[in-house]
Each structure stands twice: as C-alpha cells, then as structure tokens.
Amino acid sequence: MRKQAYFTSDLSQKEFPLAERIHAAIINPKILALIQNEHADFDTTKFLALSELNDYRQKYIAESLRTEVGAISALEQKVLDTVSDSGIISKVTEEELSGSDNFAQRLADRVARFGGSWTFILSFMGVLLLWIIANALLLHNKGFDPYPFILLNLFLSCLAALQAPVIMMSQNRQEVKDRDRAKKDYIVNLKAEVEIRGLHEKLDHLLIHQQQHLLEIQQMQIDLLQDILTRIEKKPH
C-alpha cells in the first residue's frame, strides 16, 4: 500500500497531506497581504495548506464586508459559515421558507386564491341568478327575500366585508415572503461570488502544478537526449 506523502506548512509549521500544498505565488495578492500582516516572513517562495488558505479567504471576505458595509449582518455571517463548512446554502433557505405558515395563514391564502378565480366568479353568479329566479319568478315575489332582495344585499355586504381583510392579509403575507426570497437570493448570489473566486484560485493552482509537472517531464526528456548524445559522441566511428 502506497504511503501518503506529507509536507510541513511554512505558515504554521504543521504537517498536511501533500495534495493540499499551495504555493504562495498563486495566492491572491490581497489574501497574501493579509497573511503577511500576521506572518511577516511569509513570502511567495513559501508553501501553506489549502485549509489554511481557506481560513484566510474567510478572514478576507469578512474584512471586505466590514469595510464596505460597516458591520457583518446575519446574512453575510451565514454565507461565511457555509464557505467554511462547504455547506449548500440554497437548501437551508428553502427549508426556512417552507413549513413556516400556520393554519390561519394557509386558510387566508386559500380563500384569497379561490376569491380571485373564475370558479368563484361563475359560482357566485350562479347563486345570484338562482336566488333572484327563485324569489322573483318561482315564488312570484312572495318568497323569503322578495324584490328588492334586502337579505341578498345583506349577504353580499357581509361577504365583501369579510373577503377584503382576508385578501389584504394574504397580500401582506405575500409581501413578507417576497422580501424573504429577496434576502435568500442575495445570500445565494453572495455565496456564488465567493465560490467563484475560490474556484478561480483553485484553477490557477492546478494550472501551475500542471506546468511544473510538464517542466519536470521536459527536463527528463532533455536529460535523456543529452545522455543519448553523450553516448553517440563517445561511440567510436
């Protein structure tokens, strides 16, 4: 079984897996300056671990937010936490949006949804026509609500008085939901920006490692060619 290789970080003098080694030359200059504020002897020739770099990335993001906003809000802190633990923030925000409504709020939404549908309009028109036909024509205006249909007017007034507050309640709740969704979108966008920055740095890291590997292969090929040329020169003609 192949033994895992380790290296010693020039930043903390601790051992880390060799796969996490990051050359300081590929670090973002602003993050490198932040590291050098705490470790003055750390320069572009040194190495550190990826986990250590992530810690300083989080510190840099926090400092940037403090500089631009003046203080870190709960939203920005949530983003920083998900950056550090590699969590999926969109899943968290969806869980917060769902399951927060009580029975009265769900009932208000259903009433408002039904009151603004063609089903309600057609049903309401049908009830009105049946009411008028039953009292004016079938009962010859001697029914329980003869013309001018005072009882019907009372029902309509009560319905309007109850329906309007329910619709306003549903609209207010929808505004609250829209504000919450806007906050969630901001959180997700901020997290995406941070992750994209980190992805760029990782790509730079991979490219430099690949270039170093190619240079090593090229040097080996040059050594082989040099050895072949030396043997050819030494070979008697």
Rank of each mutant, 00 (worst) to 15 (best):
N189L: 15
L214I: 07
Q218L: 00
E193L: 14
Q163P: 01
L206Y: 04
D204K: 08
Q212G: 02
H209W: 01
R197S: 06
M220H: 11
Q174F: 08
M169P: 00
M220Y: 10
H213G: 02
L207S: 04
L206H: 05
N189R: 14
D223F: 05
R173P: 02
D223K: 05
A192R: 15
P165Y: 03
V176H: 06
K184F: 13
I217Y: 03
I187M: 14
Q163N: 08
H200L: 13
E175H: 06
V194R: 05
L207D: 08
D180H: 11
I187E: 06
E193I: 11
V188Y: 11
A192S: 13
K183T: 12
Q221P: 04
S170Y: 01
M169R: 00
I217Q: 03
K184V: 13
R173W: 07
E195N: 11
E201P: 02
R197D: 09
S170I: 00
E201A: 03
K191Y: 13
M169C: 02
V194H: 06
L215F: 08
I217F: 03
I167T: 08
D178E: 10
I167P: 00
P165T: 04
L207N: 06
L190G: 00
I196M: 14
H205Y: 07
M220P: 03
N172G: 01
D178H: 09
V166K: 01
A192T: 15
D223N: 10
L203H: 02
Q163T: 10
E175G: 01
K202W: 13
H213I: 02
E216K: 13
L162G: 09
L206P: 00
I208M: 05
E193N: 10
P165D: 03
R173T: 03
Q221T: 04
K202Q: 10
E216V: 11
A182G: 04
E193W: 11
D185W: 14
D178T: 08
E216C: 10
E195M: 08
Q163K: 07
L203S: 02
Q171S: 07
Q218P: 00
L207M: 07
D223T: 09
M220I: 10
A182H: 09
R179V: 13
I217A: 04
L224T: 14
I222L: 05
